[in-house]
Simulated scan of single mutants.
Amino acid sequence: MEIRSDDGARVRIRPIGYQPGVDPPDDPDRATPGWHDWLLIEVDARTADGQTWSHHYPSLMVEEARALGGWLSGQAKAAVGPSPAPASVRFTEPNLALRTRVIRRRRLELTVEFSAESLPPWMRRPATAIYPLTLTVSADALAAAAEQWAGHCEAYPPRAPSRFPARGPLPGPLR
């Protein structure tokens, strides 16, 4: 999906495969447990002043990726109604997080927070570093991005029950 801000900033995020080094099985009945828990996510970002960076890293679990589409869609719908409260979503891996704040009817401020391996290369990398990329977008643009994201996620089937625990808990209810 691609989201462009009024000020020229933008972010492109898309799943590009399952976790590296773990190939999808030819026979799903004999799949190695956990092979499809993590998606390799490609990110390409540009700030309003033209600085760019990109990376790819297994940042989202399949379930988290699918839930993100619904969260984005819900945020776009909320921006059409009376002033909803700011909302955020975080994931098991801390690389990406998103926050929204309605700035006026049908206009949102979407902040994509990058951390850990997702930080821009010009930043120092202490464990607590976060780089916020704030985008001002219309509710319609966010809804279109949510649809685009859902389309990307269709290529990755939902996780089957695994005999191994996930790296951490799935995010609570997306708000």
Rank of each mutant, 00 (worst) to 15 (best):
2 E>Q: 15
2 E>L: 10
3 I>S: 02
5 S>H: 07
5 S>G: 15
9 A>C: 12
12 R>A: 14
12 R>P: 05
12 R>N: 14
13 I>C: 11
16 I>C: 09
16 I>T: 13
19 Q>A: 15
21 G>Q: 13
28 P>R: 12
28 P>H: 07
29 D>N: 13
31 A>S: 11
35 W>G: 05
39 L>E: 04
40 L>E: 11
43 V>E: 00
43 V>T: 08
45 A>G: 04
48 A>N: 09
48 A>L: 09
51 Q>V: 06
54 S>H: 12
54 S>N: 14
55 H>C: 12
55 H>Q: 10
56 H>G: 01
59 S>M: 11
59 S>I: 08
60 L>C: 08
63 E>A: 14
63 E>Y: 05
64 E>G: 03
69 G>S: 13
69 G>H: 00
70 G>N: 09
72 L>D: 00
72 L>T: 01
72 L>H: 00
74 G>H: 02
75 Q>D: 01
76 A>V: 02
76 A>W: 03
76 A>F: 00
78 A>T: 05
82 P>K: 13
82 P>Y: 05
83 S>H: 05
83 S>R: 10
84 P>Y: 01
87 A>L: 02
87 A>T: 05
90 R>E: 10
92 T>C: 09
93 E>P: 02
96 L>C: 07
99 R>I: 06
100 T>M: 06
104 R>W: 04
112 V>N: 03
114 F>Y: 04
114 F>A: 06
118 S>A: 15
118 S>Y: 04
118 S>P: 03
119 L>Q: 07
119 L>N: 05
121 P>A: 14
127 A>R: 14
129 A>I: 04
131 Y>N: 04
131 Y>R: 01
131 Y>H: 09
133 L>A: 05
134 T>C: 11
134 T>W: 03
136 T>G: 11
137 V>R: 04
137 V>E: 08
138 S>M: 04
139 A>W: 00
141 A>Q: 05
142 L>P: 03
143 A>Q: 06
144 A>I: 12
145 A>S: 12
146 A>N: 07
146 A>H: 04
147 E>Q: 14
148 Q>K: 14
151 G>C: 08
152 H>P: 04
153 C>Q: 11
157 P>K: 10
158 P>D: 15
158 P>S: 14
163 R>H: 09
164 F>P: 00
164 F>E: 09
165 P>M: 12
173 P>Q: 13
173 P>R: 14
